[in-house]
Amino acid sequence: MSGGLPPRDQLKLPLQRAVPTGAAGFVRSDCNAEAARVLDRWPDAAGQVMAICGPAGCGKSHLAAIWAERVGAVPLHGAEAALADPLELEHRPVLLDIAQDADDETLFHLINLAQAEGGALLLVSRPSPRQWSVQVPDLRSRLDSLRVVAMEPPDDLVLAAILRTRFAERSIAPGDGVIDYLVRRIDRSAAAAADIVTRLDAEHRPVTRVLARQVLEAADESGDLFD
């Protein structure tokens, strides 16, 4: 009988196990170690406000969500924070993701609420709060005085974890050496990892190093590869 099936670890597996989420799905490495260390023990006093910032896909929202689950924080998002009921936020930690999109009044109010017993406010954004455009002078001074912890773009360890997650989401088990091969050749970003996995999936073939090389070369020739 000619031609057999590809090895099982190169097949697209319809029963791939669930992708880890929460703390189990977060990979700690040098690029996020400081932020993870700080949030592990924060807040250590009442009335604290802090920000973590970093490039898209560096894991800041994931890390903040782990913190929110641990401390029982109320999660808010960007401009939608203006719709939150202040009574539900009093005396509780609050997580504001995409914080730079919140309006000045909402930001000022959340910072004030954080001063009450049991309160705390964690702001998450790509740019540092010192770079946000605000019109209220007192808010400007408060943002400029915040403790800010920066996260870096994914390093090898984190980028490999992102690739594994993207493959698992599509029920793809890449062949031996594929992830290491990609880590050395794609841009160090979550967007680049998602893009190359999408391209490989579109081939509907076992994901081997040979296929990875072919897809990368084709993308490079077309000029639309993340780099």
Rank of each mutant, 00 (worst) to 15 (best):
W42S: 07
W42R: 01
P43M: 00
P43W: 00
D44L: 00
D44N: 09
A45F: 02
A45I: 01
A46N: 05
A46L: 07
G47S: 06
G47L: 09
G47N: 03
Q48N: 02
Q48S: 11
V49G: 00
V49C: 10
M50I: 15
M50N: 01
I52Y: 12
C53V: 08
C53N: 14
G54D: 02
G54W: 02
G54R: 08
P55M: 02
P55E: 06
P55C: 04
A56Q: 10
A56E: 12
G57V: 03
C58Y: 01
C58M: 03
G59V: 09
G59A: 08
G59Q: 02
K60M: 01
S61R: 12
S61D: 10
H62A: 12
H62C: 02
L63W: 05
A64C: 00
A65P: 00
I66R: 08
W67C: 13
A68F: 03
A68M: 09
A68N: 03
A68Y: 07
A68R: 05
E69D: 15
E69S: 14
E69R: 13
E69N: 13
R70K: 14
R70E: 04
V71A: 07
V71H: 04
G72I: 03
A73F: 08
A73W: 11
V74K: 10
V74H: 11
V74A: 12
P75G: 07
P75T: 05
P75W: 01
L76H: 08
L76W: 02
H77S: 13
G78H: 03
A79M: 10
A79T: 08
E80I: 01
A81R: 01
A81W: 00
A82N: 02
A82R: 14
A82K: 10
L83P: 00
L83K: 15
L83F: 09
L83E: 10
A84G: 07
D85L: 11
L87E: 15
E88I: 02
L89S: 11
E90D: 08
E90F: 04
E90G: 02
H91T: 13
R92V: 04
R92I: 02
R92P: 09
R92S: 04
R92E: 01
R92A: 09
V94D: 08
V94P: 11
V94W: 03
V94R: 06
L95Y: 10
L96Y: 07
D97K: 04
D97I: 02
A99K: 06
Q100A: 13
D101H: 15
D101K: 13
A102V: 11
A102W: 06
A102G: 12
D103F: 07
T106G: 11
T106L: 09
T106A: 13
L107T: 12
F108S: 14
H109Q: 15
H109G: 08
H109K: 14
I111D: 10
L113K: 06
A114Y: 10
Q115E: 15
Q115W: 13
E117W: 01
G118T: 07
G118V: 14
G119A: 06
A120K: 08
A120G: 15
L121N: 12
L122E: 06
L122T: 08
